[in-house]
Design a binder for these strands. Sequence first.
DNA 1: TTGCATGTTCCGGA
DNA 2: GTCCGGAACATGCA
Length: 261
Amino acid sequence: MPELPDVEGFRRYFARYAEGRLIRGVRARDAALVRNTNGPGLGRALAGRRFEKPSRRGKWLIAPAEGPTVLIHFGMTGLLHWTAAAGEPHPYDRIVFELDGGELRYRDMRKFGGVWLARSGVPLEDVTGPLGPDAMTVDREQLGELLSRRRGGIKAALMDQRLIAGIGNLLSDEVLWRARIHPSRRANGLSRRLLDSLSRELHYVIATSNRWARIPAEPGWLTGVRDKRGARCPRCGARLRRSTVAGRTACWCPRDQRKPA
DNA sequence: TTGCATGTTCCGGA
DNA sequence: GTCCGGAACATGCA
């Protein structure tokens, strides 16, 4: 699930249930998902503090706690679950934040994500690695500037977190489909018109998806049909094409998204 | 049983 | 340095 809109949803969820609450302790049910310290270390760093207002950068959820900061990356299958009653955790609840009034649980079936700790004064980029500007705030001019430095494919460029943060496989395909750009076109070869379109569709898709806390699998969206057998373009009805681009399964419309020779 | 899955990282080769 | 493909990570599902 987790691309920018999903993490934006987790940010709101965190703010709703965890912001302002006192942290009593942390249970690392799977210690391996505490990535840069250990369970007890995370607990010691946080106990007695309160979670503050969370933010997001790309696919990272950033939760400061009066000095230290918790950073969560959701990998492929991560999510947050709040419970006011202390019941038996779900088998995939890997890390449990015991808060005043309930528990916030980090759940992750495939365990590609995890929780990191940035101690007071440590730059967050030490944890996240270099990240480009957040995709939600990149304007047309900045987008053109970033892409102009890339000779490789447009899909690979959009998904490179060091260039632009927050875009993954589904989001890149959805945006490129709307902008009618073939996923393996050169990033720095787009016309002004296509760049305008790409920027416009990027912001439309992100703004709309953020409200859903996911890319809507609704009529008129590529994401709604991309994984069906024999899927057709919601716009023109052509049979959609699937193939590996930039290491991921890309989906595009061969009629609307032509690749120049 | 096999292939595939919305993420990142590392490695080798062009 | 750049870019790409492939493998690895862990687990479930069609």
